[in-house]
Design a protein around this nucleic acid. Structure first.
Lengths: 200, 200
DNA sequence: CCTGTGCATTGATGTATGATAAGTAATGCA
DNA sequence: TGCATTACTTATCATACATCAATGCACAGG
């Protein structure tokens, strides 16, 4: 077993509650990889064969529209899984890019692994279920914000939700995540500074 | 068994592949109800105790923001399930309303029912999994549209996706779903008519 | 048959955010 | 150390969409 997979190990043992013998079985099914900043892990048109568990570093998934603009769907830092779930699950071509914002260590999780783990362990099944439900909840909040909140409120919400990312991610990517231009985000920040708004 | 539950029966037997003996067991666990147009089935602050399977008619779920504006999260017509999944699953207070756009016949699905069905039947578990994954895929598409597309393109996408709803749902609700005002939608439609755009 | 109520349309006007362009600051890399 | 690149800001103007107000229509209920 790779000593670099500490977080992933913890994830399996603690969160998904996998016992030692099963763990030994499952850990053989995953792969470890070092990803360089900027490296692309998935492109539109490809089927997403692996979910990426982030040991450390930072990934993102995003689309590129007809005008060539990027729209960030998700950031994933330590202990997050980045993937195109739909593509992986339904075995369809993805319309996402996934790439690395920082040098990143990832564990590659195949659907093979997921099936096996689900068969072996009821608690893994359960944990997976919770992860799906969390994903849905998260997406719903985001939809609601996009429908109802101004750029400023969306940004404030982002800061509150992801204080760590706010520091690590370049602003133009945050803007892309929020659905505004970098210039607008700059203005929003100026406004907030002026109003004496402090994160935390 | 209630003869009004044809669609629900079909859903269990055909889609979720529940065999007759299990079906007889499960069907006792659900309730049938007639909902009047305008009736509210869930309010913010309440925990969502039931998912609503629509036998016929039309439901919607929506939030109301600080300014009192409604933002429609989901429409549900025949054979759809309307629910606050997060609230139901995590047993948390919801922030959604659910109400009836038309007189509607629903089957009430409790988490009790879901647990039981999952225990009894592997194919139900499987079907439920697929439903979750579909939900995620659907939400992701919507997020991407909200991030990247103009009001006009979002409306065109809506028409293509839900030609039936386009006719049954008042325009101001479609506007709310799209994240624009009814006035804007009216203008978008005018534009499209002018450009000789025909649905289908 | 009138009349109230809700929905769609239209026009006038306002505003948040986009587009473009340029400047400044930070970062990497030779 | 310095130059090039990338990130962020600022300014200007443009535009999609919101807001407000008025009107027309349809249909439900007395």
């Amino acid at each position: 077993m790779n000593t670099y997979m500490q977080n992933f190990t913890k994830y399996l043992k603690t969160k998904a509650n996998i016992a030692e013998p099963d763990f030994q079985l499952l850990i053989k099914k995953v792969e470890f990889r070092n990803i360089e900043k900027g490296e692309i892990l998935l492109r539109p048109g490809e089927v997403c064969k692996h979910s990426f568990f982030v040991e450390n570093g930072l990934l993102r998934s995003y689309t590129v529209d007809d005008a060539g603009k990027e729209h960030i769907i998700q950031f994933g830092s330590e202990n997050w899984i980045v993937s195109d779930r739909s593509s992986a699950f339904f075995n369809e071509p993805s319309d996402l890019f996934i790439d690395a914002i920082e040098d990143t260590k990832v564990v590659l999780i195949s659907s093979d692994f997921l099936n096996e783990a689900s068969e072996i362990s009821a608690s893994f099944r359960n944990y997976n279920q919770i992860a799906l439900q969390n994903h849905i909840r998260h997406q719903q909040k985001r939809i609601n914000l996009l429908l109802s909140a101004s750029a400023e409120r969306r940004y404030m919400n982002f800061i509150k939700l992801y204080p760590d990312l706010t520091l690590r991610v370049p602003q133009w990517m945050i803007a892309s995540y929020l659905g505004i231009t970098p210039e607008s985000l700059s203005r929003v920040r100026k406004e907030l500074a002026h109003k004496n708004f402090k994160p935390n």
